Simulated assay, not measured.
Amino acid sequence: MESGSLDAHLFREKQVLNWKTRYQIALGIARGLVYLHEKCRDCIIHCDIKPENILLDADFSPKVADFGLAKLVGRDFSRVLTTTRGSLGYLAPEWLSGVPVTAKADVFSYGMMLFELVYGNRNTKHCEDSSTFFPSLVVNVLMVGGDILSLVDSRLNREASVEEVTKICKVACWCIQDDQNSRPAMSTVERILEGVLDVSMPPIPRIVTLFVENMRDVAFFTNSPSNVSSLVQRNTSSGGDSLSKSSSS
């Protein structure tokens, strides 16, 4: 594709995408996932939604690419039992607990990618003596009504819509809820980004609490699946249902 992949613009020194373009990319990806999940003859779970798999044409319209890990789910079924697949940093918790997955696994990955679209960096940023988990910064700002534009990629010099940044951050938090039943369908996300539906304040995603409590255990964003499993097992065994509530969708 003429403009390459999304990760090159977010994480490497390629053309910096302005906020309007980023918002349209977020909406375009949502529309693509609605087609895969709801409009194809069989539901298609992509299983590896991440910036590297979003290609951009000359007008920066996004195309969902790389279906090597995708799963077909007949319309008579809502979930499928399969081996863990996808990329660390975007994997929904259910992949790691061995339960059958649904299209909501793609919703989780999409939410993690939304954070990076805002931030212009990987969600976990390592410094010499510390690590920053960007979704936790988003939650802190949303909860206290802080400066939402402080979250936006610094290369944009705060040139972004407060309303749209707030909307995307709320949607991202809904998408990464630990309970897949609390995540919105992609058709709901599409209508929110189009301005047809409003989005309420999300509950604190349990993964944010997990990483705040285990900042040394940022293995979720490395290539160590065993550490990921231990983190998720500790999280699921510790309770914490009070942090989740069902989406109205």
Rank of each mutant, 00 (worst) to 15 (best):
A26Y: 00
A26I: 00
L27R: 00
A30V: 04
R31L: 02
R31A: 00
L33R: 03
V34K: 00
V34N: 02
Y35A: 07
L36K: 04
L36A: 09
H37A: 09
H37W: 06
E38S: 15
K39M: 11
K39Y: 09
C40D: 00
D42C: 10
D42M: 07
C43R: 11
C43N: 11
I45V: 10
H46G: 00
H46Y: 02
C47A: 04
C47W: 00
I49A: 05
K50Q: 11
E52G: 12
E52F: 02
E52K: 04
I54R: 07
L55I: 10
L55A: 11
L56H: 03
D57Q: 00
A58M: 12
P62W: 01
K63V: 01
V64T: 10
V64Y: 12
V64L: 05
A65Q: 12
D66M: 06
F67W: 13
F67E: 09
G68E: 11
L69R: 04
L69N: 06
A70W: 05
L72M: 15
R75G: 03
R75F: 07
R75H: 02
D76Y: 13
D76F: 10
F77G: 07
S78V: 07
R79G: 08
V80H: 03
V80G: 06
L81E: 14
L81V: 06
L81I: 04
L81N: 10
G86P: 08
L88V: 07
L88M: 15
G89M: 08
G89S: 06
Y90K: 05
L91K: 03
A92M: 11
A92Q: 06
P93K: 02
P93Q: 03
P93W: 04
L96Q: 12
L96C: 14
G98L: 09
V99M: 08
V101T: 13
V101D: 13
A103P: 08
K104W: 12
K104G: 13
A105D: 06
A105F: 07
D106I: 04
Y110P: 10
G111D: 08
M112Q: 06
M112R: 06
M113I: 04
M113Y: 07
L114A: 04
L114D: 06
F115L: 00
F115Q: 01
L117F: 07
V118M: 09
Y119D: 09
G120P: 01
N121S: 15
N123D: 05
H126Q: 02
H126N: 01
C127S: 03
D129F: 06
S130R: 02
S130T: 01
S131P: 03
S131M: 11
S131G: 06
P135S: 15
P135W: 14
P135Y: 14
L137I: 13
L137T: 14
L137S: 15
V138C: 15
V138L: 13
V139W: 15
V139C: 11
N140F: 07
N140W: 05
N140S: 13
N140V: 08
V141K: 08
L142Q: 10
M143P: 03
